[in-house]
């Protein structure tokens, strides 16, 4: 069953078109990583799924309903980002108890264990938490709410390395005990990739990749060697990234390389290596095939 469906969804802010004719579906009980550059439209998409924004055109269905002003969607969805706003008069324990009242599946035992593990004093105001601590607290809300649709928008902002690792592991373990649909956007794909089932990449307001993470790992291969030889086997349209190390030696990332092409390149002395998903997603979302080096080129 699909929990989220977007059909031809576009969103404009004034003259700025953020999402363009986006079509995606997300299946029930999966962890999807939403990847994209700053300004690609990730947050806009996630806010629309949570019913916080309406699309300019197109159709969004969450649990088969329109998420805007929809009590069913709000009760079954939590949206967590790094600047959740709470009433300045509320202390952490009051936020926790109001979450308990609102979310049917809220697990206060689990929330308390996490609160203790991460060393929170519940008598303080949310406003007084450091950036990393506030993100951690928000992430705990997102986990303990156990809503059928759980959305994390850049949840790890400000968290230190070990807290991020703990959070991802807690997310995976709790997901296995209580399967639900989780969408998580992040810049740090390499820390997140192993727990993802699917990856969705957004570039300039459209979805350019949406597939199982394991397939994405074999989406492209990196070639390193004499560029003239590489050019003979691989045509321009399949090149995702190209960087010259010397005048003729190039590092080229290509997609859809067949087995016979791989053998052929091997015989030509071209080295083949895998491309890490984080690296590949960077190349896919670059505006040019040469990346930052193109800026420094004298033409």
């Amino acid at each position: 069953m699909s929990v989220v469906t977007c059909q031809n969804v576009s969103k404009q802010f004034g003259s700025n078109s953020v999402l363009k004719d986006l079509n995606v579906t997300i299946q029930e009980n999966s962890i999807t990583g939403l990847i994209g550059r700053n300004g690609a439209g990730k947050t806009t998409l996630l806010q629309m799924l949570a019913g916080m924004l309406a699309p300019t055109s197109g159709n969004i269905r969450v649990f088969e309903e329109n998420p805007i002003d929809n009590l069913k969607v709000s009760a079954n969805t939590i949206f967590v980002d790094d600047d959740l706003v709470f009433s300045p008069e509320m202390k952490l324990y009051e936020i926790l108890s109001s979450a308990e009242m609102f979310y049917d599946n809220w697990d206060s035992e689990f929330a308390n264990r996490l609160i203790r593990y991460f060393g929170f004093q519940t008598g303080v105001f949310h406003d007084n938490l450091s950036k990393g601590k506030a993100s951690t607290f928000n992430a705990i809300l997102g986990l303990a709410a156990r809503t059928p649709l759980t959305i994390f928008d850049e949840p790890t902002t400000g968290m230190d390395y070990s807290v991020r690792q703990d959070f991802y592991r807690a997310l995976l373990k709790d997901y296995m005990n209580h399967p639900r649909t989780i969408i998580i956007s992040s810049h740090l794909l390499n820390e997140l990739e192993s727990i993802l089932e699917d990856i969705m990449i957004i570039k300039d307001g459209t979805c350019i990749v949406h597939e199982p993470m394991e397939d994405f790992k074999t989406y492209a291969i990196a070639l390193s060697g004499d560029y003239e030889k590489i050019e003979k086997v691989v045509n321009e349209s399949r090149i995702i990234h190209r960087r010259f190390i010397s005048s003729n030696h190039a590092y080229v990332v290509v997609k859809e390389l067949s087995g016979s092409e791989q053998d052929c390149l091997k015989q030509l002395g071209v080295t083949q290596t895998s491309v890490e998903p984080a690296e590949l997603s960077m190349y896919l979302t670059n505006e040019t095939k040469g990346g930052i080096d193109d800026v420094f080129k004298q033409s």
Partner: peptide, 16 residues
């Protein structure tokens, strides 16, 4: 699920 927990990977990957 045991494999997913042991290796910290998505259970769908372990199932594969």
């Amino acid at each position: 699920y045991q494999l997913a927990d042991m290796f910290n990977i998505n259970p769908a990957t372990a199932a594969k």
